[in-house]
Simulated assay, not measured.
Amino acid sequence: MRFDNPEDIVQLTPQWEGERFPNGRPKVSEDVLRRMRKITLEEAWGPLWNHGYTFQFEGDFKIIHPDKIMVGRAVTAVMVPKRPDLHETLLKYGHEQEGRRGFFNQWVIDSLVEDDVVVVDMFDKVHLGTYVGGNLSTAISTRTKRGGAVIWGGIRDNQQVVEIDNINVYYRGSDPTAIADVTMVGMNVPTRIGKAICLPGDIVLGTPAGVIFIPPHLAELTVVQAEKSQVRDVFGFVRLKEGVYSTAQIDSPWTTAMWNDFVSWFENDPAAEEYRHLTWEKELEAAAKIDGSGHDVRL
């Protein structure tokens, strides 16, 4: 076996057609990451659910900075309870064949780059299951700039970690013990976090409610649909305050006339400026085809 094997990662993520890191991990663009930071959990959840991705969210965490949003590309790891023969074999292999140094958790953190998020299945181990403490959290901060960690297990040195401003950490519990009696059996492989699944290169969106893992090939679609929902809401609030439309009209499928009104507002009102990278041809075409039928033309 190989840790962080490019051939395996490419094989696991065939629907991603964009840029990749040297190890094969999908590299969703910085622009999409930037825009992802402005959307809500529910806005991200909807498109995934509608595409059949129903096991992407986990909310049963403690959070170092519960008021901060975390967005980044997943680097995954799977840990299991220590079995001496397996432990010695894999540790020796990593040191001698792949030139890695230190313990398994250090291997993962040493691989991080900007905007990465460590996603670790520690099989819910907290006592002797503290994946990071002050030192490794500082290393995550240095390497990722604004990333963090999602750990289905424990952390230590909370008083130090909470002082690190530019990362966030989602974890199951705290303990003063160091990590022990665990073995890493996979790096950048499919990883289970509670009831959710994460693959290497998934976009990790951490919110006050929990964490959602967004497949890279759906990341831009998710952002676009969220942005469209946001700017339509802005328009709706404006027209409701002006008394132009009723709440029933705003909440119902829009007529062609309403869509035309929206597009005119969208193209000219300063409140829509940050959304002008969006296009509306599909919505207008759909409205023209089924206007008055009672069907919802929203994507």
Rank of each mutant, 00 (worst) to 15 (best):
R156G: 05
R156E: 14
R156H: 11
R156V: 07
N158G: 14
N158T: 08
N158P: 00
Q159P: 00
Q159I: 05
Q159G: 11
Q160S: 14
Q160G: 12
Q160H: 11
V161Q: 05
V162Q: 15
V162I: 15
V162T: 13
V162G: 01
V162W: 00
E163N: 15
I164T: 11
I164Y: 12
I164W: 08
I164S: 13
I164R: 06
D165V: 04
D165L: 13
D165K: 15
N166G: 04
N168C: 08
N168T: 07
V169A: 12
V169G: 08
Y170A: 10
Y170I: 09
Y170L: 11
Y170W: 12
Y170T: 05
Y171K: 04
Y171E: 03
Y171Q: 04
R172E: 07
R172S: 12
R172V: 09
R172Y: 13
G173I: 11
G173T: 06
S174L: 11
S174Q: 11
S174Y: 04
D175C: 13
D175M: 03
D175E: 12
D175Y: 13
P176V: 13
T177R: 10
T177G: 08
T177D: 14
A178H: 09
A178E: 14
A178C: 02
I179P: 00
I179V: 09
A180K: 12
A180Y: 07
A180S: 15
A180N: 14
A180V: 00
D181M: 15
D181G: 04
D181T: 06
V182P: 00
V182H: 06
V182D: 00
T183G: 07
T183R: 05
T183N: 04
T183E: 10
T183A: 06
M184G: 02
M184W: 05
M184S: 05
M184E: 07
M184C: 14
G186A: 01
G186T: 00
G186R: 01
M187Q: 14
M187R: 10
M187P: 00
M187K: 07
N188C: 09
V189K: 07
V189W: 07
V189N: 00
V189G: 05
V189D: 00
V189R: 06
V189Q: 02
P190L: 14
P190C: 10
P190E: 11
P190G: 12
T191D: 01
T191Y: 02
R192K: 15
R192C: 03
I193Q: 02
I193A: 04
G194Q: 09
K195L: 11
K195G: 15
K195A: 11
A196C: 05
I197Q: 06
I197L: 12
I197M: 15
I197T: 14
I197W: 15
I197G: 08
I197E: 06
C198K: 03
C198E: 02
L199C: 05
L199W: 11
P200Y: 12
P200N: 11
G201Y: 09
G201L: 13
G201T: 09
G201C: 08
D202I: 08
I203P: 01
I203Y: 00
V204F: 03
V204Q: 03
V204C: 03
V204N: 02
L205A: 04
L205K: 03
L205P: 02
G206H: 02
T207Q: 07
T207E: 10
T207F: 07
T207A: 13
T207V: 09
